[in-house]
């Protein structure tokens, strides 16, 4: 063991690790928000609630049917994604011609409904989700202890994030998507079914949130308010990064997670507020956001 700036290395790297974990969730969620906003022009306030639903779905799958972590990692996002598609078809599709603000208000309403129902049936206390045996334990790296599950979360988040980036920026489907974001009418004229693409995009974004929720379940407890607490921070992350760039959203998410972790070590009183303070500074220095384009 050694110390850095008077802080034991284990504590420092431990917080850095927690920062990276939080950062993975910021990145996954802000990525989903950016993808949805690009296609639907709606800021999905229900994103936090859908993240919570992912965790709840994994919890209930285990409780009711005994379906464990690994299948839940696929099934929960599918269920919640399908729920998202239903919401898009029944509610959101009527708003595309209206001001953006209505989308925010409507999805806020959806978030309240989902959180309210969850609170009624689950109570507001957290429910523990048991880790699968295959991911227990950890590695002693000499300067710190690395739990296997945390390493797994960071690794998978990175893969998913860059996979999404690759799919959007480097594949044909992604090209359609980007084109439809720029000019949906023209893309439609080329014979591409844009409304279906919009629906699937929303479903994908929601599934991404649910996936993050499943991964979060063993780390934080499963609780109805886990989403609303997170989504506001993710909004700040989105304001800092700007929604123009996928890669920007990923980098900002991880970066801010790390900064938050470091703040916990050096100035714990500010750890809750540091991201908001950074947002204020970014607004002063670069109003369009770090990776944003001036509207």
């Amino acid at each position: 063991m050694f110390t850095i700036f008077g802080i034991p290395s284990a504590a420092l790297f431990g917080q850095l690790l927690i920062g990276l974990i939080n950062g993975s969730f910021y990145a996954l969620l802000s990525l989903g928000l950016a993808v949805i906003f690009g296609m639907l022009n709606i800021i999905n306030f229900a994103h936090g609630a859908q993240y919570m639903l992912g965790a709840v779905a994994a919890f209930l799958l285990l409780q009711w049917t005994g379906i464990g972590y690994w299948p839940a990692l696929i099934i929960a996002p599918l269920i919640v994604g399908a729920f998202g598609i239903v919401i898009e078809r029944t509610l959101l599709q009527w708003l595309y011609k209206l001001d953006h603000l209505y989308g925010l208000l409507l999805t806020f309403g959806v978030a309240l409904i989902v959180e309210g129902i969850a609170r009624n049936y689950l109570g507001s206390a957290g429910l523990p989700y048991v880790l699968p045996d295959s991911l227990r334990g950890g590695q002693n790296l000499g300067f710190m202890f690395l739990p296997n599950y945390r390493a797994w979360v960071i690794g998978v988040s990175l893969v998913i994030c860059f996979g999404t980036w690759f799919a959007i920026e480097r594949t044909r489907l992604g090209a359609y998507l980007r084109a439809a974001t720029e000019n949906p009418t023209l893309v439609r004229a080329f014979g591409i079914n844009v409304p279906v693409m919009i629906t699937l995009t929303y479903g994908f974004g929601v599934a991404l949130a649910a996936f993050a929720g499943v991964m979060a379940a063993p780390i934080y407890n499963v609780s109805p308010q886990m989403g609303s607490e997170l989504i506001i921070v993710v909004f700040a992350v989105v304001v800092i990064g700007g929604m123009g760039s996928i890669l920007g959203a990923i980098l900002t998410g991880f970066g801010l997670g790390v900064i938050e972790g470091l703040t916990k070590v050096f100035f714990p009183e500010a750890s809750n507020t540091v991201i908001f303070v950074i947002m204020a500074i970014v607004l002063l220095v670069r109003p369009a956001g770090l990776f944003g384009r001036r509207a």
Binding site: L106, G109, V110, L112, I113, V114, G116, I117, N120
Partner: peptide, 12 residues
């Protein structure tokens, strides 16, 4: 807690 749900429904 249903107040939350009802508020959400009113929003929608």
């Amino acid at each position: 807690e249903w107040v939350l749900v009802i508020q959400g429904l009113i929003f929608v």
